[in-house]
């Protein structure tokens, strides 16, 4: 993939953040997964979520994308609380992009149809317009020759890049990525991470759950360590990954390097 020299707008430190999560609580039965959790993502910012398996990273991302109903707290996107049941959830979801660990491409559709589905159904683009945009996006993620292919004919890395294209083609205000490389063979991880780093340089606002610490160090302007349903420690990658202050964070990082 070519490295484009797009000048990213500087992260805005002034004004309200694009996304502000506060006091978020989510439980499954008796099991409290998110407990009074606070988190902010600035416009053009990139926040990386780390934490042990089962610490609630996926649940948090799904809650933000309104795929899980939360017990309490607020999820403000540009100041509007999406957790309020009277907010149009379909419209809110259409403003965010979500990429899943297992790609979740639609198996009965070609790659092109996967990517044009939402532009046509949700964003009211006509077929020609949607296909042109999809081809451009697929070319960008290096899948120009796989447009007519079906998901099961692609490698994992190609499927994940198609899934990213499917999310990006709708110009999301916020991109949510849930361990998008953990299902990939090691040699395919690089191609996906490189694509994400490029999006980052272009100023895409991202919230990323990942176990790729080297990647986190490169792209994140903030790293949040999730533990016991909250952001246990957060700061710049150098602070959290380089010199963690809290015991649990140190233990988690030590286990990763072990």
């Amino acid at each position: 993939m070519s490295t484009r020299s797009t000048t990213a707008p500087p992260p805005s430190s002034s004004g309200s953040p694009l996304l502000r999560v506060s006091g978020l609580r989510k439980s499954f039965g008796d099991h409290v997964v998110l407990d009074d959790l606070d988190l902010e993502v600035a416009e053009h910012g990139c926040v990386v979520l780390i934490g042990a398996s089962g610490s609630g990273k996926s649940t948090l991302l799904r809650a933000i994308d309104l795929l899980e109903e939360v017990d309490d707290g607020s999820i403000e996107l540009r100041g509007v609380d999406l957790a309020d049941p009277w907010v149009d959830a379909d419209a809110a979801r259409a403003r965010m992009g979500m990429v899943f660990q297992a790609y979740n491409l639609f198996g009965h559709m070609s790659v092109l149809d996967n990517v044009t589905l939402a532009p046509r159904l949700v964003h009211g683009r006509d077929k020609r317009e949607a296909e042109a945009a999809a081809v451009e996006m697929l070319t960008r993620v290096g899948l120009a020759d796989k447009i007519r292919a079906y998901p099961d004919q692609l490698s994992g890395g190609q499927q994940q890049r198609a899934a990213i294209a499917r999310a990006l083609v709708n110009d999301p205000e916020l991109l949510l990525l849930d361990e998008v490389t953990s299902a990939l063979d090691p040699e395919l991880v690089g191609e996906v991470l490189e694509l994400l780093a490029e999006l980052r340089r272009e100023g895409m606002t991202m919230l990323i759950a990942t176990h790729e610490m080297a990647f986190a160090r490169d792209v994140a302007d903030q790293v949040c360590f999730l533990h016991e349903g909250r952001v246990h420690e957060s700061g710049t990658p150098a602070q959290v990954l380089g010199g963690p202050q809290r015991t649990r964070t140190r233990e988690f990082l030590a286990r990763l390097h072990a």
């Binding site: 379909d90 979801r93 992009g97 899943f100 297992a102 979740n104 639609f106 009965h108 949700v122 499917r166």
Partner: peptide, 28 residues
């Protein structure tokens, strides 16, 4: 269910998800 989640995440309504994603795969 992950197919439904992916469709809803794109902003498709419940009905659109049923018609365009669930039913075609169900029939197959």
């Amino acid at each position: 269910p992950s197919q439904v989640a992916a469709a809803r995440a794109l902003g498709l309504t419940r009905g659109q998800t049923t018609r365009r994603v669930v039913v075609p795969q169900a029939v197959r």
